[in-house]
Design a protein around this nucleic acid. Structure first.
Length: 240
DNA sequence: AATGGCCCCAACCGCCGTTTC
DNA sequence: AGAAACGGCGGTTGGGGCCAT
């Protein structure tokens, strides 16, 4: 009996056809009742497997591309604060998954942490830090809205484009289509990338003169980071 | 060209808290 | 109220790709 059951369920890498089918049924039925969805869809996968595939790969609100230095710093800080609370950290990085952050930590950041202590300092005080905090908050609000049921994804992207056209000609058009879904880079990513490129190019280096190319120094007690912490209550509904 | 080691990340596993019936 | 189903989370694994030898 169990053997039959196991035989019936596929494992391992997902095929393109399976992905398409999963997307179709999630669109139809929503992101819930994964076991039922798996059964109804005819996918020979467990509900858990379907959920994982959607959450970590197919969900159109996920960001593609490598983590930015800014995101890396946030991961550093939050990990110092919360430890291996990957999903909690992921909620602070819209468009990134817990799995993604966990993998990134294990393969990139852990070594850096092992190589040095957290008490080395990037000093974010001054206008640059303030600007960063502002951008962080702004984009987070945006993503909170994107995840809110009352806004359709497409509609919100339009809104985002319009915002950019009005507010910042240079950030307009940073929309990048993915192959499958016609999705954008997240506003968060685009804005941070844009901001970094437009800001003093050496901001990070300036404030971490003691760091090497391979090591980023972090001040866990940065004032702006504390503000982000205070801001948590307000933005905790990011994914809800 | 072959191969061994390493890195990266998608996918799985097992546990536990929450929801549903 | 309690059992079963479901969903979320953190840890682990396996395989593909890259690179040095």
């Amino acid at each position: 009996m169990d053997c039959k059951k196991e035989e019936a369920l596929r494992r391992g890498p997902w095929l393109e056809e399976e992905d398409k089918r999963l997307v179709k049924f999630v669109t139809l039925l929503g992101e819930r009742r994964w076991d039922s969805l798996a059964r109804v869809s005819g996918l020979k996968r467990s509900g858990k497997s379907c959920r994982l595939r959607w959450m970590n790969y197919l969900n159109p609100s996920l960001k593609c591309g490598p983590l930015s230095q800014e995101e890396e710093i946030i991961i550093f800080q939050l990990h110092a604060l919360w430890g291996n609370k990957w999903s909690k950290i992921a909620r602070r990085l819209p468009g990134r998954t817990d799995n993604q952050i966990k993998n990134y930590w294990r393969t990139h950041l852990r070594k850096k942490v092992e190589a040095q202590n957290y008490d080395k300092i990037i000093d974010w005080r001054g206008n640059k830090g303030e600007e960063l905090l502002h951008k962080y908050k702004e984009t987070e609000i945006m993503w909170t809205r994107m995840k809110t049921r009352e806004y359709g994804f497409d509609e919100t992207v339009k809104e985002y484009k319009q915002r950019n056209m009005e507010n910042d000609k240079e950030t307009n058009g940073v929309i990048c289509e993915t192959e499958r879904f016609g999705v954008t880079n997240s506003p968060y990513e685009n804005r941070i990338i844009d901001w970094i490129s437009k800001s003093d190019a050496n901001l990070l280096e300036d404030h971490s003169s003691s760091s090497t190319d391979n090591n980023i120094n972090i001040n866990v007690g940065s004032w702006w980071f504390q503000e982000i912490m205070d801001f948590e209550e307000f933005s905790c509904s990011l994914w809800s």
